[in-house]
Amino acid sequence: MREPPELHHKKDAEISLSGTAVIALLSAVHEKGADFRFRASGASMSPTIRNGDIITLSPPKRFKPASGDILAFRHPETGKLIIHRAITVSSDTFLAKGDNSLDPDGHIPLSNILGVVTRVERNGFSLFWPDIRRFSGAARIYFRIQHGFLNLITRIYSVYKAVRRH
């Protein structure tokens, strides 16, 4: 013990934990039945979730996933933590895709689900985000409409970019 013992308070922006480390912490917090709040990175769910938004993940045990839900899961091939939308859900897998991605991630085993997004904060404000644990029917209809609209916008934009290129 050459240095005095210290407790460092770290802000999320000050640290760079690997995806595996975040998964370890998130799983540990969920094991206690608590929600997990952290800063999202990447643009694959934009504009629903933007780079730097703070998201809250609730434990997967509290709900049954359905299409339209935004899920955190461990990718079966890369082991990375991904937060994308469930497009279809079967008895043992779901098809995931980022709102801003053209291609889906493939069929993911339901056992790989780590949590469900139940809150998104941007610039200090909570975005409108129906709580699927309390209002599952209405919330999921909202998510489906939102996803359908975003999908349409994404497709129109990709066609527009393709037309401009030629």
């Binding site: 013990m1 240095e3 013992p5 407790l7 912490l25 709040r37 800063r39």
Partner: peptide, 25 residues
């Protein structure tokens, strides 16, 4: 790494702590 759970939330954005080697001992 230590994450306190406050009001049912483990907050990695605002409440994440680490301890140095002496602290860990």
């Amino acid at each position: 790494i230590i994450v306190p759970i406050t009001a049912g939330v483990g907050d990695m954005d605002d409440q994440l702590f680490s301890v140095n080697e002496s602290g860990k001992i």
